[in-house]
Design a protein around this nucleic acid. Sequence first.
DNA 1: CTTGACCTTGGATTAAACTCCAAGGTTTAT
DNA 2: ATAAACCTTGGAGTTTAATCCAAGGTCAAG
Lengths: 160, 160
Amino acid sequence: MYRIGELAKTCGINTDTLRFYEKHGLLAPSKRTVSGYRVYSADDAARLQFILRAKAVGFSLSEIADLLSIELDKANWACSDVKTMVDDKLLQVKQRIAELERFRRSLQILSDTCCGGPASAEHCSILQALESCDVSRSERLLDKETHTHHHAPVQGDCKC
Amino acid sequence: MYRIGELAKTCGINTDTLRFYEKHGLLAPSKRTVSGYRVYSADDAARLQFILRAKAVGFSLSEIADLLSIELDKANWACSDVKTMVDDKLLQVKQRIAELERFRRSLQILSDTCCGGPASAEHCSILQALESCDVSRSERLLDKETHTHHHAPVQGDCKC
DNA sequence: CTTGACCTTGGATTAAACTCCAAGGTTTAT
DNA sequence: ATAAACCTTGGAGTTTAATCCAAGGTCAAG
Ligand SMILES: [Zn+2]
Ligand SMILES: [Zn+2]
Ligand SMILES: [Zn+2]
Ligand SMILES: [Zn+2]
């Protein structure tokens, strides 16, 4: 049996977070003291662990609510239902990674084309790329071995 | 010279988005008609393109505001200032990718251990992993060649 | 019997980037 | 002249996952 502060501390979260989870139907203490204090049982703590583990693999709170409703009524759900949720999430995560990888590639190209020196940004290749073309301009700049500097490189590894 | 609807349409965004950008200091039309309609010049349109390109490589609107203030006053900024912003963003993006990769690996393991069949979720390895252990339990399940099914696999590729 | 640590509630706020709405004014086409 | 399409403003709502606050109640120690 834990009071809210104890449970929060042992799980490394905030008491407000526990109240927030309760308000959103994820975890309610199974008892209250006469004076109204929340009292969490070992089962409640286990449920919190379930929530925290699901969060740790990337599920949102509303997805966790769905997982919990399955967990509480396993007999009426199939493996396929659970696996579908995991696979849907996996797809979501993969898509987000793909988007971020596109960002990463573009940013890397922008970074690689700029000398990063102390000279004026008036001819900075990054700004130029954002002004007037897509990143493919920078890609061409990088690909060509015959490229010239957009301004005198101040650091040795300027690739513009 | 474009009215708000025209500019929005040509750039594939919403008129509300343009008003939002204006309210947040990113892009104001250089003129208004006597009746108060926004009128965007070619320069305004170019500025919008700058914004959209910066968005496309992952910058947030407040970061774009910073980039725009450099863009408008290039002479007083150095290449290094611009490159630093790109490199900071790059680091951010890489860190987020790393987090999502951790999610992806965990979810993949969870998915791989579950048969995904129509049988009851009462012994589903995914729920078990979330109940009582971290993903390493599933990892052990997967690694061990001597593992047994948590229930009779219904689909051929059940790995539990 | 008072101090300090803990607990209660409801509601406000945060960040990001829009999106939608109401109530009304303007332009354009028929 | 009137309908359709467009524009204006201010403000509210959305999503996610909390975090913070105020005003007050409870409990254990000294
Ligand atoms: Zn350079
Ligand atoms: Zn540069
Ligand atoms: Zn199975
Ligand atoms: Zn399963």
